[in-house]
């Protein structure tokens, strides 16, 4: 009755709300944890101590190099057809503007296609993308590539509608990528409300002029660490189930939901199993990634350093879509492995989280999944998640201790059973 014991301990017993309390202590203490920031390195040192105090095994830090970008002071002011201060969040890795800023007329488009059709109008302008929110993975392309596509047609800067499912005048940040051979221009996200207002003004034929100022700066890469802790397997210690979340966040809010929650339910999974005196046949490895938000930078280096042992990884798991009440588990693997995972999900009947979806995903575990290791991620309320994602609203106020208890129970049952059953998950 292992599953029942884990569920009782996490949801109704001594350990309830522990992951929420631990998370709130960390994020209230250090705040948001941007790649390259002192806050992130402080959080790593605190977690290194926490995991040792929690009497986990083989607790250690694995050194990596990560990007260091700083936002600096930034602002945007609409000057015509009337004065209006625009809330913005510059995008990660963007360059800054000259001190006096960039003042230019805007060209509003709703898609890359429209931008290419109107390329002749773009030279010397600030391109405003007012792309509709379809879903995160489709719409995020405008944030990631908006500057490059605007620069290709001679624009001076790009302002991109925040990639969010709901807005109360909240800009959302995130990483953007330049392209070799394409001039670098400053780029930031604006609110849904401002993107739509500017679009309405332009569609009536008004000339819209904006002044953008950004103090953003890119610095040389800095040292950081992936944080690792284990419960060493009692029979096949060289074989691994990897449970993970990322410890870094954007430099807004507290980085509680994205994805402090995922990091702390991963820690909680090992604590629950340890508290019950359980030791699975295979090693349960917790990894708290660094610099996920810049593109899985810490996780890629971890993969490079450990891929020689890939045949020993039975399952890789990452929680990076929030830890609200889970609707189930996303899973990528063979049909045989999926059939086994479906049996495992039945053990979660007591908390009614038994659905197994496709497309297990996670920036940090994608390298392992692409190399054939079965992968799993926690799925929950994406509408709520992307409403707060990468915004100043990402704080403990969004989190719910009871929902985190359930998420931790799912995470602990799945990771323990796969780590303890006699065989590894089948691959092909």
């Amino acid at each position: 009755d292992v599953a029942k014991a884990i569920i009782n301990l996490a949801v109704y017993g001594e350990a309830q709300n522990r992951s929420y309390e631990r998370l709130s202590l960390l994020v209230d203490t250090v705040g948001p944890r941007l790649s390259g920031s002192k806050n992130l390195e402080k959080a790593i040192q605190i977690m290194y101590q926490n995991l040792q105090d929690d009497r986990l095994e083989n607790v250690h830090l694995e050194p990596v190099k990560i990007p260091h970008w700083e936002r600096g002071e930034e602002s945007a002011m609409m000057l015509e057809p009337r004065l209006h201060k625009m809330a913005i969040l510059g995008l990660g890795s963007s360059i800054g503007t000259p001190h006096e800023g960039i003042t230019a007329e805007v060209l509003v488009v709703t898609s890359f296609d429209e931008l290419r059709r109107r390329a002749s109008e773009a030279r010397g302008k600030i391109v405003v993308y007012n792309q509709p929110y379809v879903n995160y993975s489709k719409s995020v392309q405008y944030r990631v590539s908006g500057a490059v596509e605007a620069a290709k047609v001679g624009a001076l800067a790009s302002l991109i509608r925040s990639v969010t499912s709901f807005s109360i005048y909240s800009p959302h940040t995130g990483i953007q990528k330049y392209q070799d051979g394409v001039p670098k221009i400053p780029t930031a996200c604006i609110t849904v409300e401002d993107a739509e207002m500017v679009a309405r003004m332009a569609s009536r034929g008004s000339r819209v002029v904006v002044q953008l100022k950004m103090g953003a700066k890119n610095y040389p890469d800095v040292d950081s660490f992936n944080t690792v802790a284990e419960i060493i397997g009692r029979k096949y210690p060289e074989q691994v189930v990897l449970v993970s979340g990322h410890l870094d966040s954007w430099d807004v809010g507290q980085g509680a939901m994205d994805d402090g929650g995922g990091a702390f339910i991963s820690w909680e999974a090992l604590s629950l199993i340890k508290d019950l005196g359980l030791r699975p046949k295979r090693t349960l490895r917790l990894v708290l990634w660094t610099a996920e938000e810049q593109g899985g930078i810490g996780a890629f280096q971890y993969y490079q350093q450990h891929k020689a042992n890939i045949s020993n990884y039975s399952l890789v798991m990452e929680s990076d879509l929030g830890t609200f009440l889970p609707s189930g588990l996303q899973f990528t693997g063979s049909e045989k492995a999926r059939a086994i995972m479906k049996e495992v999900m039945k053990l979660l009947q007591p908390i009614n989280v038994t659905q197994l979806f496709t497309a297990g995903e996670g920036t940090d575990i994608s390298f392992w999944i692409q190399a054939g290791v079965p992968g799993a991620s926690l799925l929950d309320d994406l509408y709520k998640y992307f409403s707060f994602h990468h915004s100043r609203g990402d704080t403990m106020t969004v989190m719910d201790p009871e929902q985190m208890n359930v998420a931790a129970a799912v995470w602990a049952v799945v990771s323990y059973v796969i780590a303890d059953r006699e065989e590894m998950l089948p691959r092909n």
């Binding site: 009755d1 049996e343 053990l347 059973v417 006699e422 065989e423 092909n428």
Partner: peptide
């Protein structure tokens, strides 16, 4: 039992189902 090094299980799916059910 095999540890799935060669991708072939020594157990039938029914045995696997029973194995997992005992974790309940």
């Amino acid at each position: 039992a095999a540890i799935y090094q060669n991708g072939v299980s020594q157990n039938t799916f029914q045995e696997i189902k029973e194995e997992i059910a005992h974790y309940k």
